[in-house]
């Protein structure tokens, strides 16, 4: 018995995440703070990166982990953005409650559409996700009395966070607020990914029929994943509404879903850090390329995608892994590889 529990302990330590608890989150905070001091004039842009990073992170859970091939993930983000914006205008200007409202709205749209869509699979599912996002886009466009139509939903303003931190002209508060929400969200998503639930999600990703032969109700499981993904996508939408103080129709557009997919693939979809790496690289390249040549920056983005897919099928995260594996100290630990 003693030996059995000893083997247990070793197996458990080996399989657990990084040796240092909260390591990924600590790295994220450190990089975030460093960027805060290094680029004080670009905080609005950096805040947008963090918000998009949260959106891509939620896609990583849905697509990278569970293999749900959605091309309409913007449905949850846009719904969350409009919900948080309308909440701030009509109900309360409390930012944290508004954030929660946005997240719940994103989850709600995911669970209702997912309940129907997840009965299908493959190309049918992909097409239906696009259709749902397009329908929501058109509803937001037509209901101009509520959403502002293609002028966007303007006039959003929120109170200081916790009554203490006022949103300022230099986006300092916005940036740190977005960073805090991203770090907390990252932690929650990582716990889910490393849990029995996450392991089962990856099992469904690789062979759903085999999972059914093991007794798994794959439909229910995927619906829960899809809903959690919708929650975090809704949070990112709410963040963008509060920080930008305006919600545009583009938050529901196909382009938003497509860009997020490109960022995820460039960064690597098998593991969570890939979502953030891909977002940072994509947005900085896009920003720089658009500055250099406002007409042809899409060439550079397209080239980046082709290069990554051909040379690094695992995404940019595989470069990080390659380097980390060759460091004299094994900072990420064996268990850092999941999926």
């Amino acid at each position: 018995m003693a030996t059995v529990s000893l083997e247990h302990a070793t197996a458990a330590t080996r399989l657990r995440g990084p040796a240092i608890p909260f390591l990924p989150e600590m790295i994220l905070v450190a990089l975030g703070i460093a960027a805060f001091f290094a680029f004080p004039n670009d905080l609005a842009f950096l805040a947008r990166i963090l918000i998009t990073g949260l959106f891509v992170l939620s896609l990583s859970l849905v697509l990278g982990q569970a293999g749900i091939p959605t091309l309409g993930h913007s449905a949850s983000m846009g719904t969350g953005a409009y919900a948080a914006g309308l909440f701030a205008i009509h109900v309360s200007q409390d930012p944290l409650i508004g954030l929660l409202v946005g997240g719940l709205a994103g989850a709600l749209i995911a669970v209702t559409t997912g309940a129907l869509l997840l009965r299908t699979a493959h190309l049918t599912f992909v097409m239906l996700t696009i259709a749902v996002a397009q329908i929501l886009y058109e509803i937001a466009n037509q209901a101009a009395w509520l959403t502002g139509g293609d002028n966007g939903l303007a006039g959003i303003s929120v109170n200081p966070i916790l009554g203490l931190f006022e949103f300022d002209l230099y986006s300092r508060t916005s940036y740190l607020y977005a960073l805090a929400v991203l770090v907390v969200s990252y932690f929650i998503v990582r716990v889910i990914v490393e849990s029995p639930f996450g392991l089962t999600s990856r099992g469904i990703h690789s062979d759903p029929d085999r999972m059914r032969a093991l007794g798994c109700n794959t439909y229910r499981h995927l619906l829960i994943v899809f809903t959690i993904g919708g929650l975090f996508a809704g949070l990112s939408g709410a963040l963008s509404a509060q920080v930008a103080q305006v919600v545009g129709l583009s938050s529901l557009s196909f382009g938003t879903s497509g860009d997020a997919l490109v960022m995820l693939i460039v960064g690597g979809s098998a593991r969570l850090p890939g979502a953030l790496i891909g977002t940072v690289v994509f947005m900085i390249v896009e920003h720089a390329a658009a500055t250099v040549n406002p007409y042809h920056w899409l060439f550079i983005i397209g080239g980046l995608l082709i290069l990554t897919v051909l040379v690094l099928p695992g995404g940019l995260i595989s470069v990080v892994d390659w380097v980390a594996a060759r460091l004299p100290w094994n900072i990420l630990g064996r268990g850092a590889r999941h999926g």
Binding site: A12, L15, E194, S195, P196, F197, G198, T200, H221
Partner: peptide
Amino acid sequence: QSLRMWQPRAD
């Protein structure tokens, strides 16, 4: 237990 989210998978 496949829906458990709040513990590492080998715990």
